[in-house]
Amino acid sequence: MTKTAIKKNAGKASSKNAFDVMSYLRHDLFPHFLCPGCGHGIALRALMWAIHELEIDKDRIAIVSGIGCSGRLGAYIDANTFHTTHGRPLAFAAGLKLARPDLEVIVITGDGDCLAIGGNHLIHACRRNLDITCMMLNNEVYGMTGGQVSPTTSEDRYTTTTPLGNTEAAFDACRLAEAAGAGFVGREVTVQTPTLKNLLKDAIAYNGFSFIEVISDCTEIYGRKNDLGNSPEMILSQKSQMRPNSYGGVIVDEPFRPNALPTGVLSTNARPEYGETYRNAMASAKRKK
């Protein structure tokens, strides 16, 4: 990542105050509604941890989420939270960020929300490059509606709408985001919580659109149906599939790791942030007139 693309106090150690996740959550609403072993809770902690280490004021944080299991996470965060319509959190977030550049806008979305019904918003958010962080929780399934096939469901998996096995190909969300021009693209598994926290930190600190795919697990209605084990087994198998980018891509995938999953910071580019570009262009146009 280029130095110029970093803003604010990225990477600043905050050992002064130990991280207490409870000070970032709305206690009254706990225990949360997620199923046992759902990786979304781990991702939520990592996000709060990243915010803590960046020392962002809670009042300045706007969490925008869509519909689905991921969409419900926002309600548990003690910040300005907006639980919007299915697939549209990136659209809401674009308006919010353009209207209020002072807010730190973070979108929490899921694989169905972000890639299916909201796919168009994702690619245009990547293209537009507003300073928004998009955390997409990928559990390969529509959990809230009962376990239907999603755009990231692996081939041959059983879901309630693919009772004979999934025959569709899955999206590689990170490559999609990169191709669409996202400034910062990364992926991590939940079991690597501190690493995930660091990735989210870099993503939030990045001045532009950052897209983070978090590999989460849906045990209750996806893992069981596909004999993937319980949550510990699922997160460990995710870990076994990961191929950290810091290895320099030297790991040979075939034939030993056919499902290798590149993790870490996958791509960055140094395009200017759209909001600043727009305001500067408008201001200079006004001066000329």
Binding site: F30, R45, T193, I235
Partner: peptide, 17 residues
């Protein structure tokens, strides 16, 4: 603590906490 999806575990590492 990190991997508890339900925020049910907190580890305290100082006597006071």
């Amino acid at each position: 603590e990190w991997l508890c999806p339900d925020f049910a575990i907190t580890v305290h590492r100082t006597p006071e906490a």
